[in-house]
Amino acid sequence: MSNDNLDPEARITAHVALRLRIRRRMQGLTLDQLAEKASVTPQQIQKYERGLNRVSASKLLQLARALNAPVNYFYDGLQNGGQMSADVEDGLADFLRADDAPALVSAINRIQVRSTRRRLLQLVQAIADEQP
């Protein structure tokens, strides 16, 4: 899923597309439901999520509101030049394929206390490190 061969604008578009898809799935929304909330067609949401169409600033704000996310959420994880680190990109792609990913992320997002979320991350990392 690496996008190293893309120009910086295309990498940013691909990153925003991935983050949009992740957030929609985390919220448990279908394409139709998000489209209705953001006042666009489901086909347009699909094009945004595939990176076929760039999301304008005003539409990104509408999508962020519809998904209960800050606008900067869509840019989290980008490095200079619009490139996501390969391990983050590969990890996100693998995670998205997991059937239980949306439920897991939704549960984690309901944890409001930042220090608790950090402790949960440390626990998950410790469990992962123990795996054969």
Rank of each mutant, 00 (worst) to 15 (best):
S56Y: 01
A126W: 08
A126M: 12
V16G: 03
L34N: 01
R11T: 04
N80R: 15
L61W: 08
L6H: 06
L78H: 06
Q27W: 01
A103P: 02
I12Y: 01
Q44E: 13
I108R: 01
Q27R: 15
R118I: 11
N3H: 13
L92K: 05
R117P: 01
Q79F: 01
V113G: 02
D4P: 00
N3S: 05
L60F: 06
R21G: 10
K47G: 00
Y73G: 05
P8E: 07
H15T: 03
D94H: 09
Q79A: 13
A38K: 00
L104W: 11
L67Q: 05
G51D: 07
A128L: 11
A38S: 13
L61A: 14
G28N: 06
V113S: 12
D7M: 08
K59T: 10
L96K: 04
L31V: 07
D7G: 13
L121H: 05
L78G: 08
L20V: 07
L60S: 06
L29R: 01
D129I: 00
R114N: 11
E49C: 03
F95H: 07
F95D: 04
Q27C: 14
D90T: 13
G81Y: 09
D76S: 14
R11A: 02
G82K: 06
V71T: 14
D4C: 01
A128I: 06
N109L: 09
Q46E: 13
N80T: 14
Q122Y: 06
A103T: 12
A14L: 04
R117W: 02
L104I: 14
S39I: 09
L34P: 02
M1K: 11
L63W: 01
Y75S: 12
S85L: 07
E49G: 02
E36P: 00
N80Q: 15
L52K: 11
Q83Y: 03
P8I: 05
M1I: 08
L96P: 00
L29K: 05
L61M: 11
L123N: 12
G81K: 09
Q46D: 14
V88D: 03
G91R: 03
R54E: 06
F95I: 10
L78N: 06
N3E: 11
E130T: 10
S39G: 09
A66T: 02
V88A: 08
T30A: 08
L29C: 05
A38E: 01
V71Y: 08
L96Y: 03
G81D: 12
G91Y: 00
R119C: 03
F95G: 03
G77T: 08
A128T: 07
Q112C: 07
V16K: 00
N80Y: 13
R24M: 08
L18M: 14
P8C: 05
D129Q: 14
I45L: 05
D99K: 13
A93K: 08
L96D: 10
V71C: 06
P102W: 03
I45W: 01
E36N: 09
R23A: 15
K47H: 12
M84G: 04
L104H: 08
